[in-house]
C-alpha cells in the first residue's frame, strides 16, 4: 500500500535535488571556463549566482526537516531522506569550490597564466562526469554504480598529484613564479576537493540503498 502524499513528497524532493545537482554540475564547468579564458565578468556572475545556490540548499534542507518532523519516516524512507539532506549539503559545498575557481580568476587579474591549462580542465571534466554518474546512481538507487563512481576519485587524485609535481618544478626553477603557481595549485586543490565531495555523495547513495555506512574511497597519502 503506497503512502500517497508522503511518497509524492519524497519523489518531488528527489526531483528538486537532482535538478540542484545538475545546476551544480554546470557551475563547475563555468568556474573552469572563467579561469581558462580569464573571463572576469563570468567569474563575477558565478559569485553572484552562488547566493542562489546556497538559498536552494537551505530550501531543500528545510523540506527534509519538515518530512522528518511530520511524517516520522522509518527504515528505507528514513535513510533516503537523511541521504538527501546530506547530499544537498555536499552539493552546496561543491558549488563553493567552483565559486573559488571564479574568485581565483578575479584575484589573478591580468597576470598571465603560468602555463597552459591541460590537466586542470581534465580534472574538471572527470569531476563533472563523476557527479553526473553519482546523481544518476542516486536517481536509480544503484549502490554498485555509486561505488564505481567513488573509485573514479583515484583518477582525480592522480591528476592532482601530477599538477602538484609540475607546479613544484616551476617554483624550484624560478622562485619568482611562486604566486602564479600557488594560484593554479589552489585551483587544482579546489577541484580535487570536489572529487571528495562526490565520493561522500556516493557513500550516501550506498547508505540509502543498503543501510550500510562505509567509507568508499579511503584517502591515500598524497
Amino acid at each position: 500500500m503506497p503512502r500517497n502524499s508522503f511518497d509524492i513528497s519524497i519523489s518531488e524532493l528527489k526531483v528538486q535535488l537532482l535538478d540542484y545537482g545538475a545546476r551544480v554540475k554546470q557551475v563547475i564547468g563555468e568556474g573552469m571556463d572563467a579561469l581558462k579564458t580569464r573571463d572576469r565578468a563570468l567569474a563575477e556572475a558565478i559569485i553572484q549566482n552562488d547566493a542562489h545556490l546556497n538559498e536552494t540548499r537551505y530550501q531543500l534542507e528545510d523540506q527534509c526537516y519538515t518530512l522528518l518532523a511530520t511524517q516520522s519516516p522509518m527504515a528505507g524512507d528514513l535513510r533516503e531522506i537523511l541521504s538527501m539532506l546530506l547530499i544537498a549539503i555536499e552539493l552546496e559545498r561543491i558549488a563553493d569550490h567552483a565559486k573559488n575557481l571564479a574568485e581565483i580568476t578575479i584575484h589573478m587579474g591580468d597576470e598571465p597564466l603560468l602555463k597552459p591549462l591541460i590537466d586542470l580542465p581534465r580534472m574538471v571534466e572527470v569531476s563533472q562526469h563523476m557527479l553526473g554518474r553519482a546523481l544518476e546512481a542516486f536517481a536509480q538507487n544503484d549502490a554498485l554504480e555509486a561505488k564505481a563512481v567513488a573509485a573514479m576519485d583515484d583518477e582525480m587524485d592522480n591528476l592532482y598529484k601530477q599538477i602538484f609535481r609540475e607546479l613544484m618544478t616551476y617554483i624550484v626553477e624560478d622562485p619568482r613564479t611562486v604566486t602564479r603557481a600557488m594560484n593554479l595549485l589552489f585551483a587544482a586543490h579546489n577541484v580535487e576537493r570536489i572529487g571528495d565531495c562526490i565520493t561522500n555523495i556516493a557513500e550516501r547513495v550506498v547508505y540509502a540503498r543498503t543501510g550500510r555506512l562505509e567509507e568508499l574511497n579511503v584517502q591515500r597519502e598524497v
Partner: peptide, 10 residues
C-alpha cells in the same frame, strides 16, 4: 514485510 510495515505501507 517489516520494511513495509514500519514505513507505514501496510
Amino acid at each position: 514485510c517489516t520494511e513495509d510495515y514500519v514505513t507505514g505501507r501496510f
